[in-house]
């Protein structure tokens, strides 16, 4: 109510000032609730982000101090270095081996887990079980399965009269072997997300397609896939970003070898920073990884935008 008689304590105070005071009070109150999170974010997320950028522009001392300012020197060195280009190539191949296979295996399992039969919850639990397994545990199990002396995989090969394969010591097989471990470990996640999406497909939609004479495959292709495309998109993006950041399975299975055939970006950052003590160079690698992750997200958005149907 403007005009009229002003009531309450605000009698002589201009309205704008009252508002400003209320805003300030709300800000102070909200600030108290936000402070704990903000402190942690400032110290362990925002400050290090800036600091990492700064480090990447310097030649650093072995103790992480700033030495000579080199500007884009570290970046130029990386982009001209065969080792770094190799780590980019390996990371790309690793994603190529892992992400499509993960979706190709996850989708049929999710479809089966979406059947309406008795005891289905047992299957759902089994198919998504690897969520509960850490990457270290997964890598240790597979290290043993892939062992040329006591591993079951090479034993199966000898059963069908094939020569044994040094899965983790042969440069041709090491990356596929690490990828297989990763696909197994991530399978549970893919099943859970895709199953949740399948459960959201309306029955009426499927029924309508059936009545229109669509077979199983027709329903799947023209009804189910479009309906769950946001989840397929989500799994694709999240797996790619996750795979590009892989470290634990590489550290346990191959240490980047043999012959750098599994030396993905994160592993090479780790080597450069904590073995060669070249923090500046490693920081520049991390910045490139950061940009790569952002670009990947953007690229997948652009590609999927064409056929992803949002409800």
């Amino acid at each position: 109510m403007s005009g009229g008689r002003p009531v309450g304590p605000a009698r002589d105070v201009p309205r704008a000032r009252v508002r400003a005071q209320a805003d300030l009070r709300a800000l102070a109150q909200a600030g108290a609730y936000l402070l704990p999170s903000l402190v942690v974010f400032c110290v362990f997320v925002f400050y290090p982000l800036v600091r990492n950028l700064e480090l990447s522009l310097y030649e650093t001392t072995p103790f992480g101090g700033l030495g000579l300012f080199t500007g884009a020197g570290n970046y130029a060195q990386l982009l001209g270095s065969p080792a770094f280009l190799n780590s980019l190539r390996v990371t790309f191949l690793f994603a190529l081996y892992t992400v499509p296979a993960g979706i190709a295996l996850g989708l049929p399992l999710a479809l089966l887990a979406n059947r309406r039969i008795r005891g289905i919850v047992v299957y759902r639990t089994a198919y998504s079980f690897t969520i509960a397994v850490s990457i270290a545990a997964a890598a240790l199990i597979w290290h043993w399965l892939l062992d040329p002396n006591v591993g079951i995989l090479d034993y199966l090969l000898t059963l069908v009269h094939l020569p044994k394969v040094g899965w983790l010591t042969d440069p041709r097989w090491a990356l596929p072997a690490v990828a297989a471990t990763t696909v197994w470990k991530d399978l549970g996640f893919n099943v859970v997300v895709l199953l949740a999406a399948l459960q959201g497909v309306p029955d009426e939609l499927v029924e309508a397609a059936r009545i229109d004479g669509a077979g199983q495959w027709g329903v799947f292709r023209s009804v189910v896939v479009p309906a769950i495309s946001p989840a397929l998109f989500f799994v694709g993006v999240v797996s790619t970003i996750g795979v590009v950041q892989s470290f634990g399975q590489i550290h346990i299975l191959t240490q980047g070898g043999p012959l750098d055939s599994t030396n993905v970006i994160v592993y090479s950052i780790y080597r450069n920073a904590f073995f060669n003590f070249r923090f500046g160079l490693a920081a520049a690698q991390a910045m490139i990884l950061f940009v790569l992750v952002l670009v990947l997200t953007g690229l997948q958005f652009a590609v999927f935008e064409r056929w992803v149907t949002y409800q």
């Binding site: 110290v43 362990f44 997320v45 400050y47 290090p48 982000l49 600091r51 990492n52 480090l55 992480g64 970003i241 950041q245 994160v266 950052i269 920073a273 904590f274 923090f279 490693a282 920081a283 991390a286 910045m287 990884l289 950061f290 992750v293």
Partner: peptide
């Protein structure tokens, strides 16, 4: 922000 970008500064902190 991927953890790798904050890894080295956080370690130094």
């Amino acid at each position: 922000i991927p953890g790798e970008v904050t890894l080295i500064p956080n370690y130094l902190t």
